[in-house]
Each structure stands twice: as structure tokens, then as C-alpha cells.
Amino acid sequence: MSRLIDSILIPTDGSEGALAGAKRAIALASRTNADVHVLSVVAVRSDLEEGTDAAESLYASLEAEAEDAVETVAEMARSADAEVTTAVTRGTPFQSIREYATRREIDVIAMGTKGRTGLDRVLLGSVTENVLRTTRTPVLAVPPNADATEIDNVAFEEFLLPTDGSDGAAIAADWGIALASRLESMVHAVYSVDTSRVSRAKAPDELLDALEDSGEDALETVREHARSADVSVSGAVATGPPADVILTTAGERDVDLIVMGTHGRTGIGQWFLGSVTENVVRQADVPVFCVPVSAETP
């Protein structure tokens, strides 16, 4: 890529949750000189026969609302001097978002984690989860309570970078450190030794020491990478369920962004980063930048 991030896709349904995602996305686009794409998907309803007058009347109304939602975000992006492309389409929301990102070679999808509910709306939260599970593109997942500041005041000063030493975590580290370098941010790396899966009463000290040593090795890999990119970095091994450790550390460090892979290792002493990522996205008070294993290395 000529830039770290050339393009950011912002799906919207006009909800407050979507606007929270849009603000963080536009702030990131402004800092990285990325182009912005704004997309609204009108969900196709199985109980309506397309082509009938009733169906087309309803879809026309929904598409008009979608156009308004798209234009609201587009105006925000233009105010931040971003180049903006807009689109409204019909389909299954998460599939349409994924397909648009692939077709347009989008670098990052930025979404709120909560959206509207109701007869004619799809809960954006479920759409976000489906996008996270299926896309090959990094996703910036933004919780509603992150919408607490104006775009110009959005901070990207402190990143939390969880690692389990897996290939997936390494790819996420590449993205996190590249972003930190571009945005002049500091990185805090954390490795969790999940003793809930390895009872201290039954596991020999040698096993627990080996798990902690593995953690230190994984952290040192991140530290070396960060130092080579001239990024300030700290790291620590923590004990406990990974999602709890990540959320607690994020709060203690008062980070602005969590950067993590969507899949990691499984097995004794290791954690499946996929389920951990979903739990973190659901519970985090700050945006989570989720990087799939298949994402292009920045």
C-alpha cells in the first residue's frame, strides 16, 4: 500500500451506534489521509415479494432513509476534508458490507457495535459480529459509549496489543505497531496466562513457569518489533482469563484503542483469540481494531 490505510468503509444505519463508529472512522481517516466510503444496506425481507407495488413502496421508503443516513456521515467526513464515496444497496447487510470491501479493495471497515432494532431495521451489533467472523479486512469495532468527543479531539495516543504468540497475534501486532508508528502512539503489550484452564493445585510449577516463559518470549517479540519501528512499548504477563485481562488492562492503562487478532492458538495454556475477541468487542469501552489472519500485512 502507498499509505498505511488508503480507504475506510463506514457502514451506517443512521443509529447513534453507527454515528459513534463513523466519528472514530473519520478521525482515523483524517490522521492517515485515507479516503472514506459510506454504505447503507437495506435488508431484503423474506416476507416481501420483490417487484410488487407494496414491496417497492416499502423499499423506496427505506432507501430514502438510508440515503439520509449515508449523507449525514458523508457530510461529517467532508468536513474533515476526506474524499468521500457513498452507496446505498439492498441485500443481506453483513454480506453486502463484506462484498463491497472486497470489490473496492477497502483497507479497514469501521462499524459501531450497536445499531437500531425494529421491524424494518437490522441490529447493527449482529451485523458487526457477522462481518468480524467472515471478512478478510480489518474491522474497527466502536462501542456506543466511545461517542464522547468531537472528531478533532479523538485520541490515538495509547494502544493495547494483546498477544498469545500465534501467527494471528503476530499479524495484529504488525498492524498495531504500524498504526502506532503512523499516529505516534505508545503500545502496551499483554500476554495472559489462563490458570483457569491449568489448576495450580494440579499443574507442576515447571508447567506454570513454562507458560510464563512463553508469555515473556511472545512479549519480547512484540517489543523488538516496536523498537525497530521506533515505537514506545511496554509489556507484561498477566494471570487470568484472557478477555478479563485485556479489559482490565485497557481500563488500568486508559488506552484509546485495543488492537488484536481475530484468531489465535488453542490448547493447554493458550487461548482461542476468536472467542476472546468477540467477548472483548462486546464489553470494551474503547474501540477494538480486529485483524483477521488473512489480512494483508501493512
Rank of each mutant, 00 (worst) to 15 (best):
R133V: 11
N153K: 13
A146E: 02
D174T: 13
T149Q: 12
A172L: 06
R136Q: 13
L160F: 13
T134C: 01
V154P: 04
L124P: 05
N153I: 02
N145V: 06
S126F: 09
L183F: 03
I171V: 15
N130V: 00
V142W: 03
L132G: 13
N130T: 02
V142S: 02
S181L: 00
V142C: 03
G168A: 10
A173Y: 01
D167F: 00
A172W: 01
V154M: 07
T137C: 07
L179P: 05
R121M: 12
P138W: 03
R121Q: 14
V139W: 03
V139N: 01
D152G: 07
L183R: 05
G125C: 07
T128H: 06
E129A: 05
P144F: 09
G125N: 05
R136P: 00
P162S: 10
R182D: 11
F156T: 00
L179K: 06
V122A: 11
P138C: 07
A146M: 02
F156P: 00
A169Q: 09
I171A: 05
A172V: 04
A155Y: 00
W175D: 03
T137M: 03
P143K: 11
T163Y: 03
A141S: 11
S166Q: 05
T135C: 12
A155V: 00
A170T: 11
A170M: 00
A173M: 04
E157W: 07
T149H: 12
D147Q: 11
N153Y: 13
L160E: 09
I171E: 01
A173V: 06
A178C: 10
E150S: 14
D147H: 13
S126E: 14
D167R: 12
P144N: 09
R182T: 15
G168C: 06
T149S: 15
D174S: 15
T128L: 04
E184D: 15
A180G: 12
G165S: 09
R136K: 13
G176N: 07
I151V: 14
V122Y: 13
F156D: 00
L132I: 15
G168H: 11
A178Q: 10
I177K: 06
A146T: 04
L132R: 14
N145T: 08
L179V: 07
E184T: 14
T137H: 08
I151S: 00
G165A: 08
A173R: 02
E157M: 07
L161S: 04
G125K: 04
A169E: 09
A172C: 06
A178W: 12
A169S: 15
T149K: 10
V142Y: 02
L183Q: 03
E150Y: 10
